[in-house]
């Protein structure tokens, strides 16, 4: 397959089976002064995949998003979108990507229709073709009846939908979304995900989405987990979870350190203290629970047994909980 046919959407939608990468990230490192935001991150995203960037605040996912959307140059490393380099061929990249930012980017003083017309002009669309496309997009996001009302009168969910319509107006082959469901209620969140799935299936759009929500990451075909700028996991949600043996047991105790040490001694297991809880992984967890509770009857105040989640993957790879980052110190600069 030649470079030029990779650029074409037709090739992608007619031949989904052919392996090609819509997005290639290789050895991206980024620093803000002394702080390393991304450390040698590499991954490929095949065409028509929904790919997740999962990580807590400060993990580097917003930095990576800025680099992929051509808004920031990486300190080192390369990234390409449909074989166009985000640094050297930014115009080719911009032509092919639709970007939905986490922060609002619609002009609230303009109506929904005016916002989309303006967006179309920025992509060289005009006239009747643009009118038709704007109408089509507003229908798709369920705002056709509010087309001529100013966006400032819309609810948060409706504003997000205008945002989405804006990013998709020029039929991008690759869609980049930064925390697209922030501030949406569960119903609206489901709608967004259904729509992303439709886009991927019917139009072979490649979708890269950043999120800090485990349940959203579960919906991706594949994902990477970022922690403090490092790529700590890469795979399908099922693959990643199956790497954890059996079940996850979480014990609460007044003295978690002592309990963890006791369990390690007695059962020869690796018991981690995570926050104020003790956490371990074991097959047939429900049987093990009775043993533990009998052995340390006074020390255990609560027990839970569960199938591994992506959060467990995160803990297994990093040794700490998703949300116990020292956030104020590490929070990304300029992030809202």
């Amino acid at each position: 397959m030649t470079a030029s046919s990779l650029q074409s959407r037709t090739a992608a939608s007619e031949d989904l089976a052919r392996p090609n990468s819509a997005i290639r990230v290789s050895g991206i490192t980024h620093r803000y002064g002394d702080r390393v935001a991304l450390n040698n991150v590499s991954f490929d995203v095949p065409t028509a995949e929904i790919f997740g960037l999962l990580g807590p605040n400060g993990s580097g996912k917003t930095s990576l998003f800025r680099i992929l959307s051509t808004l920031m140059l990486p300190t080192s490393g390369t990234a390409t979108i449909l074989d166009a380099d985000v640094v050297n061929a930014s115009n080719a990249v911009r032509r092919n990507i639709g970007v939905v930012f986490q922060a609002q980017s619609v002009d609230i003083k303009l109506s929904a229709s005016e916002n989309l017309h303006h967006q179309g002009h920025l992509y060289g669309l005009r006239g009747r073709a643009l009118d038709a496309r704007v109408t089509e997009m507003l229908e798709r996001v369920g705002l056709a009846d509010r087309a001529n009302e100013r966006v400032e009168t819309f609810s948060g969910g409706m504003q997000r939908r205008v945002e989405l319509a804006k990013g998709l107006l020029h039929r991008p082959s690759v869609l980049l979304l930064d925390e697209p469901t922030t501030g949406l209620d569960p119903g609206a969140r489901r709608d967004v995900w259904n729509y992303l799935n439709i886009l991927r299936h019917s139009e072979a759009v490649t979708i890269l989405v950043t999120t800090h929500l485990m349940e959203e990451a579960e919906k991706c075909d594949r994902l990477v987990i970022l922690n403090e700028g490092n790529l700590v996991a890469l795979g399908t949600p099922t693959e990643l979870k199956s790497e954890i043996g059996g079940d996850v047991i979480v014990l609460e105790s007044l003295d978690p350190a002592a309990l963890a040490a006791g369990i390690s001694n007695r059962f020869g297991l690796k018991a981690l203290v995570v926050g104020d809880k003790v956490r371990l992984e074991i097959k047939n967890g429900h049987r093990f629970v009775t043993d533990v509770v009998e052995a340390f009857s006074g020390a255990v105040t609560s027990v839970s047994v569960s199938k591994p989640s992506l959060e467990d993957v995160f803990i297994a790879r990093t040794g700490h909980r998703f949300w116990t980052e020292p956030q104020p110190a590490k929070s990304e600069k300029g992030k809202h």
Binding site: R9, T10, S13, Y123
Partner: peptide, 23 residues
């Protein structure tokens, strides 16, 4: 005809940057 899904290359006229006047 805008109703059918079409390749991006058809939606956007050519591979040059959009002319400066319209934006």
């Amino acid at each position: 005809n805008i109703a059918l899904p079409r390749p991006a290359s058809q939606m956007l006229p050519n591979n040059q940057p959009v002319s400066i006047w319209l934006p």
